[in-house]
Amino acid sequence: MRAAGAALLALSLAACATPRYAPAPGPAGGPPPPFTPPGRPQPEPPPLRVIEVAQLPGWAADNHAEAFAAFRATCQAAKEPAMAQVCRAAKASPLLSAQEARRFFETRFRALETPGEGVLTAYFAPEYPARTQPDGTFSAPVRPKPADLVNGQPYAPRDEIEARPADDAIAWMRPEDLFFLQIQGSGVLTFEDGRRMKALYAANNGQPFVGVANPMRDRGLLERDNTSGEAIRRWLADHRGPEADEIMRLNPRYAFFRLAPDDGKQPVGSAGVPLPPGRAIAVDLSHHAHGELHWITAEAPVLRGAFPSYRRLVTALDTGGAIKGEVRADLYLGLGAEAGAEAGRVRHTLRMYRLMPRGAAP
């Protein structure tokens, strides 16, 4: 879903989207290394901190039975041999009680702290109305992948694509809804005859993702603590036309879609398995692997109306174009407007711990 390039969110708008400037080349996703004069010994990397799972901050308060059910349903995404062995044990087991599930994790894993702090954002699978023909409100075409687009190569930016005829449109949406669908990477469309179809990511134009929250804040269009996805979408709807178009075109990335019947299931992430709401994260795959199990603890929200903290066990099952860095995660929260309202307010300071099977080398 978000592997799509996507899966970017309202919050991605506000948070993920902020470009990070590095003054000089350095390790992927982080700052450049400190300068060491020639002839001097290189600084030692910080020691790895390994703790017992039971010592994780907030561990006792998690819903361990729910966490186990999600892990059991998706752990086949892990390819590392020690994780695959734990996965086989989970799948051979029935669903466990909260106490049994807690013991399962505590006896089979230890926790490796990921150094530093980062950012937690969130995303969701939207549900939007659509039309088979355009009108004054439903004026934005949902476009299929162009025949001349080659994945991995730069293609035309958003403004050039939007200027082209849309004879091959597969649906028509309100412009602000399409903008958010492209950020999320997939969703469900309901047509005027009642048909429900999944809009599935097909490709993107290879242009960088640029968030619109910061420019809107800097222009005085939104208050500093009110750049949630919900607030952005409301402003775009209220200013539909040239004003909203100008803001949306600040983001040159453009996503293309295909339609499929709605099966009522959760979307599939880049790991190839359905995303369990609240238990799946999108990560930077240059730092992490599909199927990794992580404990996240996220606090100090900056957006109005956000939950104060998120502490839970999650699995890396997706990725996204705006998810960059080692301590960076995008939490999948589910389908529909309620999930979208929550997701759009998530921008928290994040710490991450990777759960390693006992016996595996850190």
Rank of each mutant, 00 (worst) to 15 (best):
E160G: 12
Q133V: 13
I51W: 13
T107A: 15
R88W: 04
L149N: 03
P31W: 04
P126Q: 01
E44V: 12
L149S: 07
R131A: 12
Q55C: 09
E52C: 00
P126C: 01
E44Y: 09
T114I: 15
V53Q: 03
A156M: 13
E117Y: 12
D167L: 15
P31V: 01
R72A: 12
A122F: 10
G152N: 01
K145A: 00
A111L: 07
F71C: 05
E106Y: 00
A169T: 10
P141D: 08
P31E: 06
H64E: 13
R174W: 13
R174G: 06
C75T: 07
A84L: 11
R49N: 11
L95H: 09
R164Q: 14
L120C: 04
R102Q: 14
P154Y: 03
G58C: 13
I170N: 03
G118V: 06
E66L: 13
Q99F: 07
P175Q: 12
E162W: 11
A111C: 09
R102G: 08
M173V: 15
E52P: 00
D135N: 14
I170P: 00
R108Q: 15
Q153I: 11
P165V: 03
C87H: 07
S139L: 14
D148M: 14
A84I: 05
A122T: 00
L149I: 11
R102C: 05
F104A: 07
P32C: 05
S93G: 10
A169F: 12
E176G: 03
R143A: 01
P175D: 13
P94K: 06
A84R: 15
F68N: 09
A98W: 06
A82N: 07
A166K: 08
D177Q: 01
R88E: 10
A82Q: 12
R164K: 15
P115E: 06
E176H: 13
I51C: 13
P126E: 02
L56C: 09
Q153L: 13
P38R: 09
V86G: 05
F138E: 02
G118C: 06
P45W: 03
